[in-house]
Structures are given as structure tokens and as C-alpha cells.
Amino acid sequence: MPHVYIALAMAEPRLEVVELKYRHTISPRIPLFRRSARYGSGVLDCTFSLQRGEILGLVGANGAGKTTLLRLIAGILQRQAGEIRLEGNIATPLELRSIIGHMPEHVRWNGSRTPLGIIEEFCILSDEATNTAEKIINLVGLTGQIDEPLHRLSQGMRQRLSLGVALIGSPDILLLDEPFNGLDPIASASFQKLLKSLQQKGVTIIVSSHFVHDLSQLVDRIAIMHRGQLVEEGTMEEVSSRLGFSDLYRIEGMGSFDIEAHFDEEHIIEYAHSPESWSALVRGASQQSLQAIITGGASIVSWTPYQPSLVDLLRSATGLELEEMSFEVSPQILVPLRGDGDEDE
């Protein structure tokens, strides 16, 4: 019988976020009139779960609520509704902070203190032995800067220091907000390798990043956020399939090709051609279609299932065009996509 209990316990997700809600308060112009405070952007009804050793990529346009979601999970902000569970048990903010390592997006380390001093201080804050500080410094590649004043560190070095702080106490869950900012390509690759090795040790990781190329190579699952809500969540394949990318094919060929003779107009997503070659992105290009094209005399060079990028998924999930994404940064924007009965306004 005990084996059954162990099996059941192991089946619980390491981290479970259930209908999490938090909205920032927009302070009234006159501080005394608190009743006139309004709610602004935030996070609305976010639900997802992660198993031990999974890496979740959090993507979304600026102001989508990624940082707020990470701060809620990190136990920094107090949730207004919903639950965060650790292996099935509702966790308090203090419990969350005990097992979560958090790397915020912007930490501008400055002053005359040194990376070693900072790591030692945060070891005290985390109730960890300060003699682990040098190991962490080595782990994040700051050995050469161990006694360098903070104001002399480059942006990449500062990022490494923030990561070092997040790694204090060997956290079970790691939250990384824009970790690739300021990292050079080698540091970025080395950072990804470090994350993979942490994953193999069973660390659950959530990474929010605009560096979608780095992210897509790293994550097991993705979560797409838009206006404070999770609009898609799952493996890349699941999300691609739900967003209709699973039956898209890229066909490239030489010479001339009458695409409309082989595909209906609504199945042609993209078609480009020159006198020598052509390229088409079509929906539902089965082997029969391919056979028909070849029989028709067209010269096909390649026929590959289309691998959507994270940008494609993001655009498809949010319905936004690139231009709109770039400019939709207003902090007041939070238009509920789903109904929410207990809204205050």
C-alpha cells in the first residue's frame, strides 16, 4: 500500500497555479481619496501546472503581465484571488520564497560593494551558509570579478550576479525574468547549458524572455500571455496544433508553378515566386497533393512540415500583428478576454 501513496504523491505537479488574479492599483491623484483608486493591468485567471524538471517559456508582448505573474509565484506580490500549490498543497508566500529562486528583469547593481559581498548578504537573507558564496560566484562565471566594485560590472556581469542570487540555496523552482538581457552569445549558450543541467537535477524553471530563439531551444512548454491572461499553454506541438499550425507545409520548387490549380485559395497562406523558383506555405498539403503536383510537371525541391516560431505562435494566439505588438505597452490596458464576475469596475 505505501507504494500507492508514493505514486500518487509523485503524480502531483511540482507547481500548480490556479485561477491566479492580481491587478495593480492605480493610485488616486489625491492620496487621501483612496476610494477613487482604480485597478490597472495585472494578471487574470491564470491557470497552469508544471512537473518537476520542466522548463516553461513565458512569452507575450510588453505589458502582457509576465513579470507580475512571476512576482506572484515568487511570493513578492500578494495574490487577490486564486491559489499557488506546491505538490498539491496550497503554499503561503513565505513557503514559496523558501523554495523559489527569483531573478528579476532589471537589477541595476551599483555601488562600491563586490559580487562576493552581495552573494554573502543574500546567503544570510536566505538562511544559507555564507561559505557557499564563492561556489555560486564560480558557477555563474564571476570568478574574475569577485572583488570588483559593482559599478564596474558590465550589464552581462550584473545579469550573472542576479542569477547567482537566484541560485542561492539550490532552489527547487527557478523563475527567470528576461535572463538573456545583456548576455553575449557565448554567455547565453553557457547559460542555457546551465539551465539544462539544473533541469536534469529536477529543478522546475519558468523563463520569461523576448529572445524567442534562445527560448524555443530551451523550453519544454510555452505559455502565451496577452493582456494579463494565459491564452495558450502546453508543449510547442500542442500549442502549434491548437493554433492550426500542425497541417501547414512549406513547399519550394524550381521553374513555374500554378498554385491555384492545386490548392484552394483559403489553403494558401503565403506564395512567393521568381522566374527561377517558387515557395509556398499551404495548409493540408498531403502526400496525395504532393503526388498531384509532381504529376503535373512541377519540380519540387523541398516539402517540409512548417515549424512555427514563437513569434508565429504569439501572433496567432493574440491576433496581433507585429506593429500592434510593438506599440501595445499601455500599463492601463487589461481587457478581460473571458468573463469575470467579481471585477470591481
Binding site: L94, R97, H102, E105, V107, W109, F122, L125, V165
Partner: peptide, 19 residues
């Protein structure tokens, strides 16, 4: 708060009252 260090500090397991 401006530099972001406060966010890192508040994410540590030490209670806010002790901090």
C-alpha cells in the same frame, strides 16, 4: 526599489518584518 534590488530582497525567505 528603483534599482530592482528590493524585488530580489523581498523574494528571499527572510520575513519582511525581520528585513
Amino acid at each position: 526599489r528603483i534599482s530592482g534590488v528590493l524585488e530580489l530582497r523581498l523574494s528571499q525567505p527572510m520575513s519582511r518584518s525581520s528585513q
